[in-house]
Design a protein around this nucleic acid. Structure first.
Lengths: 341, 341
DNA sequence: TTAACAATCGAAAACGTTTTCGGTAATTTC
DNA sequence: GAAATTACCGAAAACGTTTTCGATTGTTAA
């Protein structure tokens, strides 16, 4: 029992393929009787239009591609959820690819999506991506493209982001407001824009409050799979290097939790001895003890917003209307818990 | 600059579409000179075969569908990662849909995937799914189908599971071995097979060890979005109902963590007063304190295995070979941490 | 020289839709 | 009763591939 086609229905009812097609699509020039007949047979045969043929004919696939660095990640899986939910509302399917933070894979996957003729692409860049030719190729081919979170500012396409600098500023300011005098920062790798911006926000908050900026208080971690361990490692190092640090703004919750674990092990009390602010508001951060003060990064909303933006561009392209890229900046909020005073 | 087609290349080189196609696909009946010419122009034009046309012609999409109850979930996102990684190796793309634990949505999404003509489907059932007509329809249409984790035993298709009953038995036995005398169980909803099996494993371990089975020690939670809160609620209830319980086997890590939080709040010491064993081995469970003893549920491997199984069926179908459904059972292990003695 | 044979190419059909453009029959209008 | 209109239907082209089956050269064997 293979899938039924228009031809099958047409033959059984002694109609033409044309009429069957029009009956199913509600064209006005087919009588009520035949329309009913066709529709009935279609459901009993469990007819489903062949997407390949429809796509070939209409030149759209009702499918979009999504490339993200990692899937198993609270923030990104929330983004996926937002995109998938919104896409489904508009009748779109989502093909998900994981770049594994690799530039090479990212390139290949973009190619794959292009040959799959998806209607649009949403992407969050791999940490390793420093060259943007592959993205510009997509844009040159007039394929709608939206970047989110890990973006490249120089690429001319729509973007959905948070104001990392402002959020980091808020986080650092909160440490200052609660009495911290010497504030360290565990930052991410040098490349992705957000770890740069978060660092700059941290630095600016210090300077605006008349604190000296001390580079020796800034620790780098790659924030990859080993984030938790890197947090532990940096915490250990910090305790060896400095004995006067009383606050840390940490790039990511997971690193922060790693650091907290190390501090607990060494008898350093949080927040009495050291206050900590994380970034992302992972679910986990509300569950550990003490609860981690952090910046809420709205993953679901970013996904939703990214799809909405993409959808606009897809529609505009369909009507041959020009479209100027737009950058949407979502609000973040400081979530106060018990890791700060 | 739109995407190039075979026709474009053919016209520019004064060749037929046929020859261009054959040149690109390495047919032997095209001279080396023309083959080289064609390939060169193809790359400079950035030619990518139109997947719609290829699919329509070859009747396969190199795409599979995946339906899962929730995306933002440590176990499921690991499964996704396993499937996506394995699929990519074989040149397959994955369309992901989230059923939100809804039977109705699940049905619709299966329809969507069928009309999309995916080459096969991997699914983990929604909790609400008690009727399996929609699955049998897929099988009747001869579309490869693999179920994992939340399965329906009566549906005749390949399955990838763990031995929930055995794992639960192990968990309960561990509580008994470490000295617990009165052991409660927080179980999942009544429907999904695994919460039934875990319950049965718990019960059997009690009986095999000469413990009485006391239904009043079994608490139910839906294990949906509110899992953490349900864990808290059940813990509170348990403290009101019983003062002699010294061990709990809990259906899911997240519920377990909720319970632990509640116990800590009420001054109940873990594991001194009550020992706890969870299920799934979420990353979080290794990070909280005390660390949660739990059953490791190998999400990544399940995903990998599910795709491998599906791939076999797809290949078999292509060759018109019959295929008998196979059930793969993956091993689980008890991960001992500090929530048990 | 002719027949056989490679080597190289192309015409055409097919996959299943959608949509344009006519065509026929039935109905209405004058 | 002829003309105009409406209601209903179908032929055919197109979307971009893949693949079968010939067709046309030039080359070798008899």
């Amino acid at each position: 029992m293979k899938q039924a086609t228009l031809k099958d229905i047409a033959e059984q009812l002694n109609l033409s393929i044309t009429t069957v097609s029009k009956a199913l699509k509600g064209y006005p020039d087919v009588s009520k009787k035949t329309r009913a007949m066709v529709k009935e047979l279609a459901t009993t045969l469990n007819y489903k239009p062949n997407a390949f043929a429809v796509n070939l004919r209409t030149k759209e696939s009702k499918t979009i591609g999504l490339i993200i660095p990692v899937i198993v990640h609270h923030f990104f899986s929330n983004v996926i959820r937002g995109i998938v939910a919104q896409a489904e509302k508009k009748g779109y399917l989502v093909i998900i690819l994981q770049s594994n933070e690799s530039y090479e894979l990212e390139k290949k996957q973009l190619d794959l999506l292009m040959s799959q003729r998806v209607d649009g692409i949403i992407i969050s860049l791999a940490n390793g991506t420093a060259d943007f030719k592959h993205l510009n190729t997509i844009i040159a081919q007039n394929k709608p493209l939206v970047m989110f979170d890990k973006i490249a500012k120089v690429v001319q396409c729509s973007k959905v982001i948070i104001d990392d600098r402002k959020a980091a500023y808020m986080a650092t300011q909160h440490l200052i407001d609660t009495g911290c005098k010497r504030i360290a920062h565990f930052r991410g790798a040098l490349l992705p824009q957000n770890s740069i911006d978060r660092f700059l926000g941290y630095k600016k908050a210090l300077i605006d409050n008349g604190f000296p900026y001390d580079p020796s208080l800034v620790y780098i971690c790659e924030c990859g799979d080993m984030s938790f361990e890197e947090g532990q490692k940096n915490a250990k190092q910090l305790l060896e290097d400095h004995n006067d640090v009383d606050g840390i703004f940490i790039n990511t919750d997971l690193v922060a939790i790693g650091a907290m674990t190390e501090f607990s092990k060494q008898g350093v009390k949080i927040p009495e001895d050291i206050s900590i602010v994380g970034f992302s508001n992972w679910f986990m951060s509300s569950v550990i003890s003490p609860g981690l003060t952090t910046i809420d990064q709205p993953g679901y909303d970013m996904g939703k917003s990214a799809f909405k933006q993409l959808f606009k561009e897809i529609k505009a392209k369909k009507k041959n209307k020009p479209f100027t890229p737009k950058t949407v900046t979502l609000e973040t909020a400081l979530v106060k818990r018990d890791s700060t005073k």
